[in-house]
């Protein structure tokens, strides 16, 4: 679906934003693109969505090599959700969706009302102007706009930003549903929970280069100490002890009256990210 080979891009002579990116995204995959601010995520997304030209290297999207400004056929197959909900504040949710959907072939379109219902958009606000919506409501309308024309490739930039926990769960379910329909998802995020729960593979971007690329599970396992911490009671006292996975095979090597908890010491995706890039995400 996406093939990127030795992608380089500079803003002017001095600021090189991308330094030879190499990655590909398979059909129907959810691919996470993670990196701190200024690492080149937005630049990469702008190139992939056909907004930014003037790069070197090879970029192939939807089976075709990108050359110059893309034609309408390309944009009919992609959907983009921006980090901020860009909508016409003076129009209602429905009017916004009707306006944006007017640029796609009718046979490709979903029913805007049903899509909004799916995203649990409050019915009472359907005809009110967007300027009266909360950020969560705007984000729901933006998500509806991005998927309205059933794109083959969906670019999502911080999709759960500004949503309450139940909204974030709803969005994750929606993204998984899109994947089941065969949509490929390119997810740019700071949110490690989203990346961990949703992505088939993630790429860590640091200073314009990919520092690591694998499944979240593999990345965490690779950096795991393979040990567990056991918390237990012995002779009326609470105590903890760390032990390797290997040593667990033979059972507990110490006496205890009660096991209170067992914690695997697997690193979080954020720990792995910091280890690879030397920087936190925020």
């Amino acid at each position: 679906m996406i093939e990127v080979k030795n992608l380089e891009f500079s803003y002017g002579k001095e600021k090189q934003a991308l330094r030879g990116l190499d990655f590909d995204v398979e059909d129907g995959e959810i691919f996470g693109f993670l990196g701190p601010n200024g690492s080149g995520k937005s630049t990469t997304q702008k190139i992939l969505t056909g907004i930014l030209g003037g790069y070197s290297g090879r970029v192939s999207m939807l089976g075709e090599e990108m050359k110059g400004r893309q034609g309408p056929a390309f944009f009919q197959n992609i959907g983009v959700l921006f980090e901020f909900p860009y909508l016409y504040g003076n129009l209602s949710a429905l009017d916004n969706l009707r306006y944006f959907s007017s640029f796609y072939p009718k046979e490709k379109l979903r029913d805007p009302l049903k899509t909004l219902e799916e995203l649990e958009f409050p019915a009472g606000y359907l005809k009110k102007t967007v300027s009266s919506y909360s950020k969560g409501m705007r984000q729901r309308v933006s998500m509806a706009r991005a998927v309205l024309h059933n794109p083959r490739l969906l670019f999502l930039d911080e999709p759960t930003s500004g949503l309450d926990p139940s909204g974030a769960v709803l969005f994750r379910r929606m993204i998984e549903k899109e994947q089941k329909k065969g949509t490929t998802v390119f997810l740019t995020t700071h949110n490690m929970t989203d990346a961990d729960l949703l992505c088939d593979r993630v790429a860590f971007l640091a200073e314009g280069s990919i520092a690591a690329l694998d499944t979240p599970k593999n990345l965490k396992e690779r950096d795991s100490g393979h040990c567990v911490t056991v918390e237990y009671m012995w002779q009326g006292r609470r105590d903890t002890r760390s032990m390797t996975m290997e040593s667990l095979k033979g059972g507990l090597s110490f006496a205890c009256e009660e096991i209170l908890s067992v914690h695997s010491q697997e690193p979080t995706l954020e720990d792995v990210f910091i280890r690879y890039t030397g920087r936190g995400l925020s």
Binding site: T49, I51, P72, A73, F74, I78, V80, F82, Y86, Y88
Partner: peptide
């Protein structure tokens, strides 16, 4: 329109 950010959305629409 610039303030609403919608110009950016139009960059990704199949419209000239």
């Amino acid at each position: 329109e610039k303030g609403m950010g919608v110009l950016r959305v139009h960059a990704c629409l199949p419209v000239r």
